[in-house]
């Protein structure tokens, strides 16, 4: 008689509770760390292999965005509000943070697609690709962050001590993005519309979030939307702490951080159960 018997049955995962599902996913991520590392290495280091600028693109992308916002501000097109910090420095930090959030959503939505090329040939825990995709987005952010820091220091911008806590302060955004992306990753397999819509929605959401302007001087409907938008706090509070060393809505920020974690747990359960219903539709 054997030990270590594996059984595959219909609706196997439906019977798994939320906490059990999350524990299984976390345990798989630890056990599959070599797979995560190998695929991270493949996709991170090889992504710019056939390009003259190589990894330089990671810093060039936010820099180009930054240039356009600074130009618009100088031309008087933009009304960023009042602030006691150089606007170019403010916008480069803010857009880098938003870029990180946006990249994390897209990365998490690619959880199933990350295994394209072998997902139909090899059995592996698909949810482990979430870790790999997020690691990649986080590594890109760290490179941008180092570059932006050097740039700001070169231009003599006075940085607050909390500025250096940015890699930790972005974690709530990462968690919220992972929850959104993981949910979307299931639906994108059956309906590609979501993938396209996600790109447009993120672009639109950026204007509904005080990324290139401050929330203080807003009134009317804009103020109401900004107040209801969780990114106003997840992004805005993190940025304010990084830039000014203080934030007005710290309690909301903490509450939303907790909610983001709960949302991620729900989306992990959703992914774990729903994945087996859509996986064959990838081929």
């Amino acid at each position: 008689m054997h030990t270590g018997i594996t059984v595959y049955e219909a609706h196997q995962r439906r019977r798994t509770g939320m906490l059990a599902a999350v524990c299984i996913m976390a345990a798989d991520a630890v056990r599959c760390r070599e797979l995560i590392w190998q695929l991270f290495r493949r996709d991170f280091f090889m992504q710019y292999k056939k390009s003259f600028l190589g990894l330089g693109w990671i810093v060039l992308s936010p820099l180009l965005g930054f240039a356009s916002w600074v130009f618009m501000n100088a031309a008087g097109v933009l009304n960023p509000g009042t602030m006691d910090f150089p606007y170019p420095a403010f916008v480069i930090i803010s857009t880098t943070l938003w870029g990180f959030f946006s990249n994390c959503v897209v990365a998490a939505s690619r959880t199933l697609k990350a295994g394209q090329g072998f997902i139909d040939q090899v059995h592996y825990p698909h949810h482990t690709m979430l870790v790999k995709e997020l690691l990649q987005a986080y590594a890109n952010f760290l490179i941008s962050f180092v570059f932006v820091s050097v740039l700001l220091l070169c231009f003599g911008v006075n940085l607050h001590a909390l500025y250096w806590a940015a890699p930790v302060l972005v974690v709530p955004m990462l968690v919220f993005a992972a929850a959104i992306g993981l949910t979307a990753s299931i639906i994108t397999v059956v309906a590609m519309d979501i993938e396209k819509a996600l790109g447009y929605l993120l672009g639109f959401l950026m204007f509904l979030t005080p990324v290139v302007y401050t929330a203080e001087d807003r009134t009317g409907i804009v103020k109401a939307i900004l107040a209801l938008n969780p990114m106003t706090y997840l992004h805005g509070c993190a940025r304010d702490l990084i830039v000014f060393g203080r934030t007005a809505g710290a309690d909301v920020f903490l509450g939303l951080t907790l909610s983001a974690f709960l949302l991620l747990l729900l989306s992990m359960k959703w992914f774990y159960v729903a994945e087996e219903k859509v996986i064959e539709k990838m081929f």
């Binding site: 270590g4 594996t6 595959y8 049955e9 219909a10 040939q121 090899v122 059995h123 087996e276 064959e280």
Partner: peptide, 22 residues
Amino acid sequence: TGIFPPDKGRIAFAGRIGALIA
């Protein structure tokens, strides 16, 4: 191999399984 889940019935195996599909 476990790439697709069954819609009915059961597969049970002992030990490690490997597939040479492509």
